[in-house]
């Protein structure tokens, strides 16, 4: 299909290496990147900043009913991860056994396939997190 090709491509800095934004006016950090600082708006000055690749689980869930494209990974864990700089993001958890997944568990970013587009389209790669 490759239907989401431009979307996959456009977000590679975020998805591949956790590039976010920092507002030089107020110092706030955002992930994913934003075009304007919601706090400073016109006064803000947004630059790229790399997020830390380590953090901890803020909340998690084990998914048993998946949207198309994720069925073969069931059951899989998703989490809100709080990075070391306090930024939170949503991510799937990779290679993480059930007994190690809990709120507060340390995690680090890994690079994985996210979706395959039916084996014909572009493979969307990106971040997942793994319990250490």
């Amino acid at each position: 299909m490759g239907e989401n090709l431009p979307l996959v491509w456009r977000k590679m800095p975020e998805r591949y290496r956790l590039v976010g934004s920092k507002c030089l006016n107020c110092g706030r950090i955002y992930f994913p990147r934003r075009k304007i600082c919601p706090h400073c708006r016109r006064k803000g000055k947004i630059v790229d900043i790399k997020m830390p690749e380590k953090g901890k689980i803020y909340s998690f869930s084990e998914v048993h009913s998946a949207p198309p494209g994720f069925e073969n990974e069931l059951p899989y864990f998703v989490a809100i991860v709080e990075l070391q700089n306090g930024i939170k993001l949503f991510s799937m958890l990779a290679d993480s056994p059930r007994n190690k997944i809990r709120i507060g568990a340390p995690v680090k970013m890994v690079f994985r396939k996210i979706t395959e587009n039916d084996g014909k389209g572009i493979i969307a790669y990106g971040y997942k997190f793994k319990v250490l």
């Binding site: 979307l7 994913p32 909340s59 998690f60 869930s61 009913s65 899989y76 799937m92 996210i114």
Partner: peptide, 21 residues
């Protein structure tokens, strides 16, 4: 869509994250 659904979120899983917390 870009940061939740794309990354494997389902709608129940978002509320599940709230419930867990």
């Amino acid at each position: 869509q870009e940061w939740e659904l794309f990354n494997g979120a389902t709608f129940p899983s978002l509320y599940a994250l709230m419930a867990r917390r």
